[in-house]
C-alpha cells in the first residue's frame, strides 16, 4: 500500500480577482448608496423642518447663542434697515429679525436660527453704498423668511443621525471613519437653490423699499473680485456658490424682467 498527497490545484480557496477591483466596486457602491440616501433624507428633512413653528426655532436658538451684543448706533442702523426689508418681505407676525453687529474685520454676514442676523464690521467697510449693504441684509432676511437655517439644521441633524447609525452597524471601525467623513461634508450650509431663492426675494424687497435696484450688482462684483484675489477667505454670503457669475446673471435677468431701474443714484452709507 502506497500513499500519496497529490498537489492541490490553486485558486479554489482564494479568488484570482484583483483586490483593487473589489475595492473600487465596493467603495463606489457604498458611496453611491450613501449619496442617494443622504439626498433622499435631506429632501425629507427639508420638507419637514420648514413646518417647525418659528417659536420652537427661537427656543432652539437660545442654546446656540452665547453672547448678547450690546446696543450700538451701528446696530440700531442695521436693525432699522432689516426691519424695513422685513416689512417689505411681509414676514409672518411671529417672525422677528434681530440684527447683531460684530466689531470684527471679517468680511462676512450670516443668518442663523431664531431670526438672528450677524453683520461684521469688515463687510460694512467693504460696502460702497447703503443699497449694497441693504441687499446683503435683505438676502439674510430672506433666508430667515424661507426658514433656511432650520432647514439646514434639520438636514444636518437627520443626515448626522443616519450616518452615525450606519457606522454603528458596520463591523469595522474603519468603515465608520469613512462614513463619519461623509457626514462632515454635509455641514450647516444653504443649498444653491436656497441661495437663489433668497436672492430673488431679497431683490424684490430691496426694490420695494428703495424704489430701484441700483447698487445690487456691486455686492456680487465685489465678492467675485475678492474671491479671485483670495479664494481661501470667501465670505459666507458667497461660500456655497461655486458659480457667482450665474447668480449675477439671474439677478440681472430679474431686474430686466421687472423693468426695475438699476442706474439710479445709490444712497451713501452714513458716517457711524
Amino acid at each position: 500500500m502506497r500513499f500519496e498527497n497529490p498537489k492541490i490545484p490553486e485558486g479554489i480557496n482564494t479568488s484570482p480577482d484583483h483586490p483593487l477591483k473589489e475595492f473600487v466596486s465596493l467603495l463606489g457602491g457604498v458611496l453611491l448608496v450613501i449619496a442617494i440616501g443622504v439626498g433622499v433624507l435631506s429632501l425629507m428633512a427639508e420638507f419637514l423642518a420648514a413646518g417647525i413653528p418659528f417659536r420652537y426655532e427661537t427656543e432652539l436658538a437660545r442654546y446656540f447663542q452665547n453672547s448678547t451684543t450690546e446696543r450700538s448706533e451701528i446696530g440700531d442702523y442695521l436693525q432699522e434697515i432689516a426691519d424695513r426689508l422685513a416689512r417689505a418681505q411681509s414676514l409672518p407676525a411671529d417672525m422677528r429679525i434681530n440684527v447683531h453687529y460684530a466689531d470684527e474685520p471679517v468680511v462676512n454676514a450670516f443668518a442663523t436660527l431664531g431670526g438672528h442676523i450677524v453683520i461684521y464690521r469688515g463687510l460694512i467697510e467693504k460696502m460702497p453704498s447703503e443699497n449694497a449693504l441693504a441687499m446683503v441684509i435683505s438676502h439674510e432676511v430672506a433666508h430667515i423668511k424661507h426658514r433656511d437655517p432650520i432647514i439646514a439644521l434639520g438636514r444636518g441633524a437627520v443626515i448626522g443621525i443616519a450616518l452615525a447609525a450606519l457606522a454603528g452597524i458596520s463591523a469595522e471601525s474603519i468603515a465608520e471613519t469613512v462614513v463619519g467623513k461623509a457626514g462632515l461634508l454635509t455641514a450647516l450650509t444653504f443649498s444653491r437653490k436656497q441661495e437663489g431663492q433668497a436672492d430673488a426675494t431679497a431683490l424684490a424687497a430691496l426694490v420695494s423699499v428703495y424704489g430701484h435696484a441700483a447698487g445690487v450688482t456691486d455686492v456680487f462684483n465685489l465678492f467675485t473680485d475678492m474671491q479671485n484675489e483670495n479664494f481661501v477667505h470667501m465670505p459666507e454670503f458667497l461660500s456655497t456658490h461655486p458659480d457667482p457669475q450665474r447668480r449675477i446673471k439671474s439677478i440681472e435677468q430679474q431686474i430686466l424682467d421687472h423693468d426695475w431701474s438699476a442706474d439710479k443714484a445709490t444712497r451713501p452709507l452714513p458716517q457711524l
Binding site: 483586490p19 469595522e172 468603515a175
Partner: peptide, 16 residues
C-alpha cells in the same frame, strides 16, 4: 481591513 469593512456592509465573499 478597509475592503473587508466595506464588504461587511453589503455581504458576500470576503476575498481579502
Amino acid at each position: 481591513r478597509f475592503v473587508a469593512g466595506l464588504r461587511a456592509l453589503v455581504g458576500g465573499r470576503m476575498r481579502t
